[in-house]
């Protein structure tokens, strides 16, 4: 009974995950060497570790952008290893948001259009799109920049637009790979506070990959990766205690 409840609340379930990349003519490089992890609804957690420890690789597999070599990874009750590319795209489209180190806004589109993009893929009506985009931009304090283009924005503003784009469809899971790497301290804190607010307000689960101390200081749970293995898994604070 207890396990059933646990299972219902878990967003990511990883068992015995191994990821190998082909290297050279015949060899392999093993980036993830047997990982077990459960992430529950509403967590604000991070994969932390030195460069090359496998954070991005792990995050990509959770994000269905890559497949496990061994083991089983369930994301939102779907077995990532057995999803077709179509099903994976569907899952990303409906349930996941991504935030990257470089903000990756489409340069020719306005802020509004960049944020609207995921809703277009979901075939939402124009009215609903407008309502959702404006609402999201409001959370992020971007209402005055609706018609600006990325080139006219500061780095911090760009990253907030990227967060808005990830959040606009109210995903269950947001994956953020080094989201503060291109930001100064003030903007980093600003962004992190915003994300924490969204986490607490909307119960969105955030998984970070980072080695930035500023990010780490906001996390509720820190999973240390070292050389493709989990070295430590620590719950550092409870929700709502920052």
């Amino acid at each position: 009974m207890l396990t059933k409840i646990m299972a219902q609340n878990s967003i990511v379930e990883v068992k015995g995950l191994v990821k190998r990349f082909p290297m050279g003519s015949s060899g392999f490089f093993t980036a993830l060497k047997g990982i077990d992890l459960t992430v529950s609804e509403g967590e604000f957690m991070g994969l932390v570790g030195p460069s090359g420890s496998g954070k991005t690789t792990f995050l990509n597999i959770i994000g269905t952008l890559d497949k496990p070599s061994e083991g089983r990874v369930d994301v939102l009750e779907k077995d990532v290893g057995s999803l077709t590319s179509k099903q994976a795209a569907q899952l990303r489209k409906e349930e996941m948001g991504f935030i990257f180190q470089s903000f990756n806004l489409l340069p020719v589109y306005t802020v509004f259009e960049n944020v609207e993009f995921p809703l277009l893929l979901l075939n939402k009506s124009a009215g609903e799109r407008k309502k959702r985009v404006m609402e999201t931009l409001e959370w992020l304090g971007l209402t005055s920049k609706v018609d600006s283009r990325p080139a006219q924005l500061s780095g911090g503003e760009c990253q907030r637009v990227a967060i808005a784009r990830a959040m606009v469809k109210r995903p269950k899971l947001v994956l953020a790979d080094e989201p503060t790497a291109n930001l100064d301290a003030e903007n980093s804190h600003n962004i992190l506070r915003t994300m924490l607010k969204l986490n607490e307000g909307l119960k969105t689960c955030f998984i970070f990959a980072t080695h930035d101390e500023k990010v780490i200081s906001y996390l509720q749970r820190i999973v240390h990766l070292e050389d493709g293995r989990i070295a430590k898994d620590m719950k550092v604070r409870s929700s709502g205690t920052l």
């Binding site: 795209a89 569907q90 990303r92 489209k93 991504f98 990756n104 489409l106 993009f117 893929l121 784009r165």
Partner: peptide, 8 residues
């Protein structure tokens, strides 16, 4: 990016 957002 478009793939990440959910295009195939």
């Amino acid at each position: 990016l478009r793939m990440a957002i959910g295009e195939e």
